[in-house]
Design a protein around this nucleic acid. Sequence first.
DNA 1: CCACTTGTGAAAATCCTGTAACCAGCAGGG
DNA 2: CCCTGCTGGTTACAGGATTTTCACAAGTGG
Lengths: 97, 97
Amino acid sequence: MGRLEIRPEEHAALVDGQPLSLTVRELQLLVSLSEHPQRIMTREELFAEVWGGHPRDDDRSVDVYVSRLRAKLGEALPGRRLIHTHNGIGYRFSPDG
Amino acid sequence: MGRLEIRPEEHAALVDGQPLSLTVRELQLLVSLSEHPQRIMTREELFAEVWGGHPRDDDRSVDVYVSRLRAKLGEALPGRRLIHTHNGIGYRFSPDG
DNA sequence: CCACTTGTGAAAATCCTGTAACCAGCAGGG
DNA sequence: CCCTGCTGGTTACAGGATTTTCACAAGTGG
């Protein structure tokens, strides 16, 4: 998809062939998001896929990791926003900015 | 229905497959309207479905959110008017302009 | 030790919501 | 015509809710 390639089997995400240095959690989150492009995913769904089980009521893990992911994606692909926030609901991955 | 798809379960409204960035209230209102196409819905009905309960005597919330909704729909679908005003009564959703 | 990751708390930034205006259009009465 | 009242469209604003970001403690493995 464009300049970004995600290869879950290889535990890798590449931008223009160069691997991003993502942590395990960051990669899991990116994989989960990118497997459902253009679909708005709730925090519950994302938490279940990445961490498993249900998040605590006041758990902000998803938000924190989205932030970390955006920071690294932003470095590799300046000016593009791949992860969109949907207030009160969750996040959405859009391959094309 | 044409280029607009509404998926309440997914918290999404799509135009040509692209999700609109609607707030929760805006989406609720659009869902309520679109679930009764071509039917004129009173402010009371809409308020009950979206906010619950009865509106204050001078409540303009429905009008304000209809306006906001029209603005966003108008951006995504220029030249089409999906929400029609029925003076003294309420609003009507028409899938085809 | 050191470098790194992870989850948590909390401050900072941002967005949403409901309300109160302000306007324009219209109809009826005088 | 000119008021007046009524209806709906739109915008501005304050408060609240939500999200983003930073800092830190604990854990892991080299």
